Simulated assay, not measured.
Amino acid sequence: MDIPVGRELGDFLRSRRARIRPEEVGLPGHGRRRVPGLRREEVAHLAGVSVDYYIRLEQGRGPSVSDAVLDAIGRVLRLDDTEQEYLRTVARPADRRASGARRTSAAGSAPQRVRPGLRLLLDTLDRAPAFVLGRRMDVLAWNDLGDAVLGFSQLPPEERNMPRQVFLNPLTRELYPDWPAVAAETVAHLRLDAGRHPQDRRLATLVGELSLGSEDFRRLWADHQVKEKSYGSKRMVHPVVGELTLPYETLTVPGEPDQMLVVYTPKPGTRTEERLRLLASWAATPNGC
């Protein structure tokens, strides 16, 4: 089953309306309101479109909508660049269905592959944990230090997926002291992927599995946050070397828009850098002894 298009658009717009207080956009904030945030009529007025047009758009049954209208709605709802891109994607189901169909036709049913040159690049990053994520945040490849930090090779192939590990593996909560933030970031990126690929049956299956298995995932998925996985920092408590503070950079692989190279970049001279050297040495020793 595909991810519902009209409902996805409507739920996203309603969630963005709910977070805007009327006084933030120059409207009176007093008086009784049945729902938090802006009313549909208020969004339509501020965006310069008719109320009927906006209601049909939110219900997913409107005509093809222009960039100018989407930009106006985005300004009213104070969308950031990623949210605005997501709005444009989900507001044009015909375009994204065609795009998704072309990608599906091009890729077929074969699993995603990491080209040899990228694998060689991973191996040259011997001082930085690194790995490649594909569609649905599947883990496609990694270097030795990335494996030593996150243990990808110890997982069955079907479990090498970041959302599945974050929400269905209880050990992940021990690995990440800031687990709530990691969980929210993971869902926000998965939601962005879902917007770009509405016909991905494997993604729909994954979302269903996570929804059944995790109340936290259901709550975060319903919040409709979207976010690029671009850069940031994660704290981890590794079972061998202890706490690590790992800034990271995420780069889209040239020629492979659905693959991302994630590189953890420990600051020179820190305890984390020292502990990663110890971990690399430990991992290179047979049986970790």
Score class of each variant (00 low, 15 high):
L57Q: 01
T270V: 05
R33Y: 05
R75P: 00
A91S: 15
P22R: 10
L13A: 05
D223K: 04
L210P: 01
Y53K: 03
P22M: 09
F12Q: 02
D258P: 00
V182K: 08
R17V: 08
G62H: 01
H224S: 06
L13H: 01
R75I: 07
V149N: 08
Y231P: 00
G117N: 09
R39E: 03
S66H: 05
E215I: 08
G232C: 05
R202D: 15
L244A: 14
S99P: 00
A44T: 02
I73W: 04
E185T: 14
R119P: 00
L155Y: 03
Q199L: 15
R103N: 01
V241R: 04
T272P: 01
E243A: 15
A222S: 14
L140K: 09
D71L: 07
D178N: 11
I20F: 10
D258Y: 11
P266D: 09
H238K: 05
L150C: 10
T82P: 02
M137A: 10
D178F: 08
I55P: 00
R40W: 03
S105K: 07
C289R: 15
L168E: 04
R135W: 02
E249S: 14
R19D: 04
L70W: 00
Q199G: 15
Y54L: 13
A183V: 03
G100Q: 01
A130R: 01
H238W: 06
A91Q: 03
V253F: 06
E58S: 10
G6S: 15
V90E: 11
D258K: 02
S99R: 08
A183Y: 05
K234M: 09
S50Q: 00
S230D: 12
L122N: 06
N161A: 15
R196C: 07
E274V: 09
G10C: 10
W179N: 07
T124S: 07
V132N: 06
G26R: 06
T250K: 06
R16Q: 09
P257G: 12
D80E: 06
R16A: 09
L244C: 13
H45I: 10
R135F: 07
P170D: 13
E8V: 03
D123G: 11
A204G: 08
